[in-house]
Design a binder for these strands. Structure first.
Lengths: 342, 342
DNA sequence: AAACGAACCGAAAAGGCTTTCAGAGACGCT
DNA sequence: AGCGTCTCTGAAAGCCTTTTCGGTTCGTTT
């Protein structure tokens, strides 16, 4: 039943086309299509049919001009490459897409100038709000208070506490990770993690330490900061085993580190998880499921962060402003690399 | 020098605000700011200063309504999760961002219904064009010929040859991969790759076979199709070594497979690259640089694909329509896992 | 029969911008 | 002085939709 001649490449139908075809005025056509009550049912039907025949889609641009709200938001990422931005972005896109909001994507490539440029461009397009997604949890410069639209920061909080930021709770993440290891009966727990220049690394270590203290324990040695790489995981494990051969769990700052740790443990003849339990961080599927055994990991619920940011922005557009840093809980995803001591 | 009272949260300045402040009409103000020639230099200067004082940014929505072109495009991905979409998206965003085009991001989550919904929404916003990004290189259903704006398909080509699609040249990729191994003096080359349901897997195998044939050689055994996982890489390697212990190179269908291959090779006492050279596919940094040794891999130049798609769309909006499937060359990134036989 | 609501419809304005066209000065020429 | 020519400027139309408000038609009430 293909239509012989669709509307095709000519100008899309406008409301006045519909009105003409239905034999009413544009005003009536508008009311009919928008469910306004001052239209006779029969007339409304005629208009709807006309609209369908012309496959009329109301021009959101015109609508936006009139309403003062465009139904668009800007999503400003600092680097798409980083794998943390993507899930957040997905969550936000998802939360908005369900409504009638469209998302402009802008990647600043970590450059402040480019970021400014994008902000200007987005404001020129009269977005109703902005979400700023960072690639690390360290605070970042605020876009300022003088913007004409609300802004929500996701993952990387703003350094201005008047702004609203949504971040994962990395201290809590450290706690629940250790809690899981304790629940598995482990007591000699080491922590190998990434670059100490990252707040995430320091906070996770802090949380881990606090959970251990609550149980009357301490970490085996100090937290071993280094790099977010497999290489560091391997190197640190070698040292760890030399110093503390009796360790029975290693909490790692990332899944990459964890893979390095597991490799060296196996090479040195330690069984995972029987002798040593290993936990990662980030719950990055490629790494967790490919490792032997599959890796227990902490998931930061980044999609959730994205959705929460979208939701917060939505309510802020509605007028309800919040501020401060709100942190969302993380969760432990249990796989084969951790198990109770038998 | 902070301004005491910025434009802040009040309505952004409009052109008529600027005109009033400069003491001219909106028409003149418009011409002055847009570089039209029919304005005295002195008047223009006055207008520009007024615009600056009010930090005036022209309303792109109004401009779009008038011009009939909005300076926006829709970027329709089928799944953001997949790692192939991201670089393409970055490339496209980059190519457009440099100009004055803004990108609407929509993720269909692999659902045709949702895709349709997004297309409708985007057309309602009067995007000037559409880029459809797929997650595998197998052809996908066309959006149809009746759309009012040009469409370019990236990575996953349309099944309608009247559409324009930009894809990586996977056959060529298989060729250059084998060429590199041949250049390293390898002659007993095996191919372990992923799911044969993927066109990419079949095409790469085809290209590899062709390059070998050109050299008067054949693969060691047949291409070993399986899954895109480390696990399959390990399993296939075990079988391969049993059947052909003299193999001197393994071309893998993905970096994940390659990591599995390398692991088993090492465990069985084969040195990489001295005894066996190993190549991956996709050039996925996390995997290539973390493996021991770092992995030589074929990069599909996906950012390039994204940029090319953006560029093609741009010219199509300008009126120059192309059609068919255009494939872009891949490149070999050489790291430690391949080296000349000494 | 006159008046009154209710129900329905359409003209017009608004939103911010660009462009066209006509008008206003300024200037030089005959 | 009168005329044509430039150079600037501004009024107004147009883009597409929504909303307000005034007008018309009916049926109902006194």
């Amino acid at each position: 039943m293909a239509q012989a001649t669709g509307p095709s490449r000519s100008h899309p139908a406008t409301l006045s086309d519909v009105a003409r075809l239905a034999g009413v005025s544009v005003a009536t056509a508008s009311k009919a299509l928008n469910g306004r009550s001052q239209v006779r049912a029969e007339t409304r039907q005629r208009v709807i049919e006309a609209a369908e025949r012309l496959s009329f889609r109301p021009n959101q641009v015109a609508r936006g001009l009139l309403a003062g709200r465009t139904g668009t938001v800007g999503l400003l990422t600092s680097d798409l490459e980083g794998r943390f931005s993507i899930p957040i972005l997905m969550g936000a896109e998802d939360a908005f897409g369900a409504g009638e909001v469209a998302v402009f994507l802008c990647d600043a490539r970590g450059d402040a100038i480019r970021e400014q440029h994008h902000v200007r461009a987005l404001l020129g397009r009269r977005v109703d709000g902005l979400i700023v997604v960072g690639s690390r949890t360290d605070p970042r410069p605020s876009l300022g208070r003088e913007l004409p639209v609300p802004v929500v920061y996701a993952y990387a909080p703003s350094d201005d506490t008047e702004d609203l930021s949504i971040v994962p709770d990395n201290v809590g993440a450290g706690r629940i990770a250790v809690d899981h290891l304790l629940a598995c009966g482990r007591t000699r727990i080491a922590h190998i993690t990434g670059d100490p220049g990252y707040l995430a690394a320091r906070e996770r270590a802090e949380g881990a330490g606090a959970a251990l203290a609550d149980a009357g324990l301490t970490l085996v040695g100090r937290p071993r900061f280094g790099a977010w790489s497999e290489g560091w995981g391997r190197a640190a494990t070698a040292i760890l085993l030399d110093q503390h051969p009796d360790v029975d769990a290693v909490l790692c700052g990332s899944d990459q580190i964890a893979r390095g740790v597991i490799d060296v443990l196996r090479e040195r003849g330690h069984r995972v998880p029987e002798d040593v339990a290993v936990m990662g961080f980030d719950n990055w599927r490629v790494l967790t499921s490919a490792s032997r055994p599959p890796l227990t990991s902490v998931d930061m619920n980044l999609e959730q962060v994205g959705r929460a940011a979208a939701h917060a922005l939505f309510t802020a557009i509605g007028g309800a402003r919040r501020s401060g840093v709100e942190s969302l809980p993380c969760r432990v995803v249990i796989r084969g690399s951790t198990a109770p001591l038998s």
